[in-house]
Design a protein around this nucleic acid. Sequence first.
RNA 1: GGCCCCUUGGUCAAGUGGUUAAGACACCGCCCUUUCACGGCGGCGACAGGGGUUCGACUCCCCUAGGGGUCACCA
Length: 486
Amino acid sequence: MKEVRTRFAPSPTGYMHIGNLRTALYTYLIAKHHGGKFILRIEDTDQERYVEGAVDVIYKTLKLVGLEHDEGPDIGGEYGPYVQSERKEIYRKYAEKLVELGGAYYCFCSKERLDALREEAQKKKETFKYDGHCKSLTKEEVKAKLEAGEPYVIRQRIPETGTTTFHDEVYGTITVENSSLDEGVLLKSDGMPTYNFANVVDDSLMKITHVVRGSEYLSSTPKYNLLYEAFGWEIPTYIHLPLILREDGGKLSKRHGDASFEDLYNQGYLPEAIINYIALLGWSPGTEEEFFTLEELVEKFDIKGLNKSPAIFDINKLRWMNGEYIRRKTLEEFHELALPYYQEVITNPDVDLLKLSKLLHTRTEVLDDIYELIDFIAELPDYDVQLYVHKKMKTTLENSKENLIKAYDVLTNLDEWQDEAIHDAIFKLIKDLGIKTGQMMWPIRTALSGKQSSPGGATELLSLLGKEESLKRIKIGIEKLSDKLS
RNA sequence: GGCCCCUUGGUCAAGUGGUUAAGACACCGCCCUUUCACGGCGGCGACAGGGGUUCGACUCCCCUAGGGGUCACCA
């Protein structure tokens, strides 16, 4: 069997949404599973959509998630160049050859004429199809127009009758009427090819064996087949992927502000978690496992597990999975990830950051959660005293105040500010007073955090904030309660 | 609208003629517990509808409905 070669061919829009990323992933997996090559090609034939720095976004993303390509613009390869705008002459040559072969023809129709045609079709509620106006131009007429310097495009010639059939690995065999196919532009008047032409030429020239792309290309695939046939080229194996949809069922797009890989990454989603999650959107290993490294995916990936129906991107599950990835890291690894967040907001030098990481490790699903988790450490929020009242803890404004005062005394006299010592001192106090644990712990925790919930209980927070800050906050709590009660 | 594709719980998703129709997320409850989280246990919840085929359909066929894609000198 010949070497499997797949390609990921994004257009540089500066935005890689997760649908694109998943296509890249599957494309990579298919190649690597068979020990083949994964090629990166930049499809920048639309000069108007050129975005500065967009190619770098692609490199950066692929690198972050570990999808290393074997050939591409940055590393070269046997079949370069790998940027379509640099292959302009190649397309022209093949377009002209296709005209000779009878698979295409020159078209000199103006934009105005085309627009009028389109408008007319719309009025009659018909699908627009080029009317073949220039199809019957004689060789001489074409030559004359060309020599006169008239702008032109090259269009694909499609049989008026018959059907075209292609086979897709996931969708099966699909047949369409040739009469339903539009004779689209292959070579634009600026000399650049359209995607429809460039992808076929490049895939063939670059010896791509498996064409992997989103199912939005399913409806134009018959035209590509006709092109391959006209050139006498071998038709690749098609693998169309089901789309990933937004929560509301629409297609993912930049316009709708759908999260790109970059957005997710910046919010603190881990690349490996993102990859793992999207691998499972549209594909199933057929087992109950759901945690996979890239290497494992390479090993387990099988086209047979691909789904036909579109999948909705569920940020909720990604969140959970990301949290799972975080929890599976060692404390030290997590600490390293969290440190930059701490440094952004925490100025109190008494705070033991490693201890903080211990508390946040199981409470962080996405790194950005850390901000909200630690905000109270930097500054005690201006909380409502009603926070002290907790039914289950059996606390009231009155007993909270009393217990806080008692705790303040005990803690003030505590010299050894260590977890165990703090814990023992408070529990001794609770025992001496004969009250319920929560009646002491809840007020302390509340005074320390000023929040309904906090990462860690009273003991942890006392230890974390340090003696000085802790006493300060308890005092504030006592004052707040006194004010309210007076 | 034409053409193409899709249809198992809110979401992902196993299932390929005979199953109590898995599992995961979310949600709910309980346990653990000094809040929250983690963890443990349990619960809710689905084969879009209608016709066939068959001894028997989630599984095969047809129709309807719903959803999606595509109809550019964008990819």
